[in-house]
Each structure stands twice: as C-alpha cells, then as structure tokens.
C-alpha cells in the first residue's frame, strides 16, 4: 500500500516535470512524436505503480530515456528544417482557390465529413468561399477565405476603434488581487469607490472585476 503510494507520487512528479519540459502545448496541439510520447509515458508509469514486483527503475528509466530523446529531437527539429519535416510532417493544402484537392485528402486520410465539420466550426459552409484550407501538422485545419469574404475590420469601415489593452483581474471570486491592483497603479480606496459607484457593498459580493488599460471596468456580481 505504502509502496504503491510512494511510487505513484514519484512517477506523477516525474511525468509532470517531463510534460512541463516539453513546453506549453495543449493536448490537442500535440505533434505526432509528442502524442506517441504521451501514450508511452502513461503506459510505462502505470506498470510499476500497480505491480510491486517490478522495480521502480523499470518505469523511471524508460520515461527518462523517452523524455531525453524527445528533448534531443525537439532541439534538432528547431535547428534543421528537413528533420522537422521528417518528424512533424508538412502542412497539406486541402482547398486551393475554392477547389477541394481530393488527392491530398486521400493522402492525409481526411474524410469529407471531417472537412465540412472543420469548415463549419470556423463559420463556413461553402468550400467555394475558401481560398486556402490547410491541414496543419498538429491536425488542425487553418481556413483562409477569399479577401472579399473576410469579415470587415473596424479599420476598413473607418470606425473609431480605441485600444483598450489587456484587462487585469482585480477581484476573483470575492478575493481582491492586491498585486494586480497595485500593478495598475490603483489602491483599495480607488477600488471601494468604484464598487460603491456600482452599488456593490464589498469585494466579497463580486464574482469578477477587471480593469483594462483604458480604465474600462467589467464587474459581475455573485449570484450564488
């Protein structure tokens, strides 16, 4: 029992450190080599966790070796374009000038249903509206419509678009984030004043309060 617990903790820490070293990638954005690594690590870690007759190093050594090789490969893929193409593949153009490249779809084993689903998720229903649709190496589809079909920007419409900057969270679930408050150059008196203006008695009644660089405030009260 104790051994299982200690082994689980050791392997968990090892995997967390390893995944952290892999970089800030989302699970859905894994390259093929990273996906293989994740699957292998999960399997390798689970065996010595459950079977106490197997020494811990039987799980630790392969995990360390895999993480080291991944690090070596990631450095090599950064340094060498050909190696990167070999390891990660190349993006595939699925739609070019509104025409679906069926040969490329077959090569990448992308079905029509999957293509249409991806296009719908990006707000397009008609492939003829698409100038380029590119299947990226992580499996996501980048959709570039014709210039005339792109949503108009405020600049194109000559609208006044004031830059509000990045909003900073000041109150998170009733807790005042004083570090953020000071970082924006405000203090608690300023915060109390802003809350009073919005008929909010105290920070604990606020679910979320943010302030952007232009001084714009967003406030959501707690409802439960």
């Amino acid at each position: 029992m104790f051994t299982t617990l200690v082994r689980t903790v050791i392997l968990y820490i090892l995997i967390i450190v390893g995944v952290r070293l892999m970089g800030k990638r989302q699970v859905g954005e894994l390259e093929p080599s990273e996906l293989v690594l994740s699957l292998l690590i999960a399997d390798l870690a689970s065996v010595p966790m459950q079977d106490l007759g197997i020494p811990l190093h039987a799980g630790v050594i392969p995990i360390l070796a895999l993480l080291s090789m991944t690090m070596i490969l990631s450095v090599l893929t950064m340094k060498n374009v050909r190696f990167r193409a070999l390891m990660c593949g190349r993006p595939s153009v699925i739609i070019r000038a509104g025409k679906i490249d069926q040969q490329e779809m077959r090569r990448t084993r992308l079905t029509v249903d999957e293509l249409l689903e991806e296009l719908r998720s990006k707000g397009y229903v008609d492939p003829s509206e698409i100038n380029y649709a590119i299947l990226e190496t992580d499996g996501s589809l980048s959709v570039l419509p014709y210039a005339g079909l792109k949503p108009a920007t405020a600049q194109q419409l000559h609208l006044d678009s004031r830059e509000t900057g990045l909003p900073t969270v000041l109150i998170n679930d009733g807790r005042v984030l004083e570090h953020n408050l000071k970082g924006r150059g405000y203090d608690l008196r300023w915060l109390e004043k802003r809350l009073a203006e919005r008929d909010c008695p105290e920070p604990s009644a606020v679910f979320l309060m943010t302030v952007d660089e232009a001084g714009g405030i967003y406030l959501a009260r707690k409802t439960i």
């Binding site: 360390l64 070796a65 080291s68 070596i72 450095v75």
Partner: peptide, 18 residues
C-alpha cells in the same frame, strides 16, 4: 542548446548506470 546537453547527459548517465 542547454536542453540538448542536459538530455544527452541524462541518456549518457542512464547508459552508464545500466
């Protein structure tokens, strides 16, 4: 490059250890 050296070092350490 630091990561590359670290990874090579770990692999070499594992090999030596084994």
């Amino acid at each position: 490059m630091k990561r590359l050296y670290l990874a090579v070092l770990i692999l070499a350490g594992l090999l030596a250890g084994s």
